[in-house]
Computed example of a mutant assay.
Amino acid sequence: MYFDGAFQSDRGASRVVFLIPDGGMIPLSFSLTEAFSRNELEYQALIIGLEITQELDLEQLNNFDDFELVIWQLKGIYDVRKDTLKPDNDTTKSYMAQFDDFSLSHIPSRLNSQADALSKLGVLPFNCLHQGPCLSG
Rank of each mutant, 00 (worst) to 15 (best):
residue 89 N to H: 13
residue 43 Y to T: 00
residue 67 F to N: 03
residue 54 Q to S: 11
residue 74 L to F: 05
residue 66 D to A: 09
residue 80 V to I: 12
residue 102 F to E: 00
residue 106 H to G: 02
residue 99 F to V: 05
residue 39 N to I: 05
residue 80 V to M: 13
residue 97 A to Q: 08
residue 93 K to R: 15
residue 116 D to M: 05
residue 104 L to R: 01
residue 63 N to I: 05
residue 49 G to I: 08
residue 71 I to G: 01
residue 81 R to Y: 08
residue 85 L to F: 03
residue 55 E to C: 01
residue 54 Q to P: 04
residue 85 L to R: 06
residue 58 L to D: 02
residue 104 L to C: 03
residue 36 F to W: 08
residue 79 D to Y: 10
residue 117 A to M: 14
residue 54 Q to M: 07
residue 104 L to K: 06
residue 75 K to L: 01
residue 78 Y to A: 14
residue 65 D to W: 09
residue 50 L to E: 03
residue 116 D to V: 03
residue 36 F to Q: 07
residue 91 T to W: 05
residue 58 L to V: 02
residue 69 L to V: 13
residue 76 G to L: 07
residue 42 E to L: 04
residue 84 T to N: 15
residue 105 S to H: 14
residue 60 Q to P: 04
residue 117 A to F: 06
residue 93 K to N: 12
residue 36 F to C: 01
residue 32 L to V: 01
residue 97 A to C: 06
residue 48 I to A: 09
residue 67 F to K: 05
residue 87 P to W: 11
residue 48 I to T: 12
residue 78 Y to R: 15
residue 102 F to Y: 02
residue 114 Q to A: 15
residue 73 Q to D: 04
residue 56 L to P: 02
residue 77 I to T: 11
residue 61 L to F: 06
residue 85 L to H: 03
residue 98 Q to N: 11
residue 36 F to A: 10
residue 50 L to W: 00
residue 36 F to Y: 14
residue 54 Q to C: 07
residue 106 H to A: 08
residue 102 F to H: 03
residue 91 T to A: 13
residue 73 Q to K: 07
residue 33 T to Y: 10
residue 95 Y to E: 07
residue 41 L to K: 01
residue 46 L to H: 02
residue 49 G to H: 06
residue 81 R to P: 05
residue 72 W to H: 15
residue 57 D to F: 08
residue 83 D to Q: 12
residue 43 Y to I: 02
residue 78 Y to M: 13
residue 36 F to L: 12
residue 115 A to R: 00
residue 91 T to H: 01
residue 47 I to N: 02
residue 102 F to K: 01
residue 45 A to M: 02
residue 94 S to Y: 03
residue 40 E to D: 08
residue 33 T to M: 04
residue 101 D to H: 04
residue 58 L to H: 00
residue 74 L to G: 06
residue 88 D to M: 13
residue 77 I to E: 11
residue 114 Q to N: 09
residue 104 L to T: 00
residue 47 I to Q: 08
residue 113 S to K: 10
residue 77 I to A: 04
residue 99 F to A: 03
residue 40 E to L: 09
residue 34 E to Q: 11
residue 74 L to V: 05
residue 52 I to L: 14
residue 45 A to T: 00
residue 86 K to P: 11
residue 117 A to P: 02
residue 47 I to Y: 12
residue 103 S to M: 01
residue 116 D to S: 04
residue 58 L to F: 06
residue 95 Y to D: 00
residue 45 A to S: 02
residue 48 I to K: 08
residue 42 E to V: 06
residue 58 L to E: 05
residue 38 R to N: 09
residue 93 K to M: 14
residue 42 E to M: 04
residue 77 I to R: 11
residue 63 N to P: 07
residue 59 E to W: 01
residue 46 L to Q: 02
residue 100 D to S: 05
residue 99 F to L: 00
residue 107 I to V: 12
residue 112 N to R: 04
residue 69 L to D: 09
residue 75 K to E: 00
residue 53 T to H: 09
residue 79 D to A: 13
residue 100 D to A: 06
residue 61 L to P: 00
residue 107 I to F: 07
residue 46 L to Y: 07
residue 97 A to S: 08
residue 99 F to G: 02
residue 98 Q to G: 10
residue 56 L to R: 02
residue 87 P to G: 13
residue 64 F to V: 12
residue 62 N to G: 03
residue 89 N to Y: 07
residue 89 N to S: 09
residue 49 G to E: 07
residue 83 D to Y: 04
